[in-house]
């Protein structure tokens, strides 16, 4: 038996909006420890992982682990019927073929869950989520890829298009900066990675969920773009860097 109740449907809507460009169908794996989702995009170069903590819900009951395969576009369509401050309830019985209230058909999705190590990144940048979104959007009008370089002074975004180049440098702020403006850098050594802008732009759909975004980078590893939600834990996006050959 699974019962989830959230008094702010808007939060679930924002979560869905932030992932449905990247992934069409996904398994919500619900357990006593929370609801998690891990899914790859169709080209398998990007991935997302999501955790919704039980204490983020007004009511959370999950008697045994249950995996709900859902079409995210259908789920978003149904949630559009709820306004942001409406209460949404998701029930799934042990028959596991629908969630009631919405009576949405569940799917069987074969997915491979991957073990993702969290630590050991060479450079970690925290910056305002809205600033990161604006930079990705602006550079996306110029080039297809962006080179993100982190040094102890700041984070640099460079792109090259058919007709011009663009370079944006964001300097690390002082410790007294306001949270919504702060840019902080933890770095073992400078890192520079080239990434497809269309994926980064898709990740920034999660901007309404958090004030700050955390970007973790290491050579030879996928970049991690993380949004920490105030009451629901996190959503993380992973993208394989492009390698010049």
């Amino acid at each position: 038996m699974l019962e989830l109740r959230l008094t702010r449907a808007g939060l679930l809507k924002k979560v869905l909006e932030s992932i449905r460009d990247l992934v069409t169908d996904a398994n919500f794996d619900c357990a006593a420890t929370g609801c998690s989702l891990q899914a790859m995009d169709s080209s398998r170069v990007a991935m997302l992982s999501l955790l919704l903590r039980p204490d983020g819900f007004e009511h959370y009951r999950c008697d045994r682990n249950i995996s709900m395969g859902m079409n995210l576009a259908n789920m978003a369509r149904m949630l559009r019927c709820a306004s942001d401050d409406d209460t949404v309830t998701i029930n799934a019985d042990d028959a596991q073929d629908k969630i009631s209230d919405y009576e949405m058909k569940l799917m069987h999705i074969t997915s491979e869950n991957l073990e993702i190590p969290e630590a050991g990144y060479e450079a970690i940048v925290k910056m305002p989520a809205s600033l990161f979104a604006r930079i990705c959007k602006d550079l996306g009008t110029i080039g297809d890829t962006v080179m993100i370089s982190v040094t102890k002074e700041g984070i640099q975004f460079f792109t090259r298009g058919d007709i011009r180049t663009a370079n944006i440098f964001c300097r690390k702020t002082t410790p007294v900066a306001k949270e919504k403006e702060a840019i902080s850098i933890e770095m073992e050594k400078p890192v520079s990675l080239t990434l497809a802008l269309r994926y980064l732009i898709s990740f920034t759909k999660a901007t309404p969920l958090a004030k700050q975004v955390t970007i973790s980078m290491s050579y030879g590893r996928p970049i991690v773009v993380e949004y920490k939600m105030e009451i629901m834990d996190h959503i993380r996006f992973y993208l394989v860097p492009k390698v010049e050959e």
Binding site: M40, R44, V45, A46, M47, E112, N113, L114, E115, I116, P117, T145, T194, A196, R221, P222, Y238, L239, V240, P241, K242, V243, E244, E245
Partner: peptide, 14 residues
């Protein structure tokens, strides 16, 4: 040429 591997090659299966 820009080469891009799949994300599955970076992580092990659970």
């Amino acid at each position: 040429v820009n080469q891009q591997s799949q994300i599955t090659s970076f992580f092990s299966k659970k």
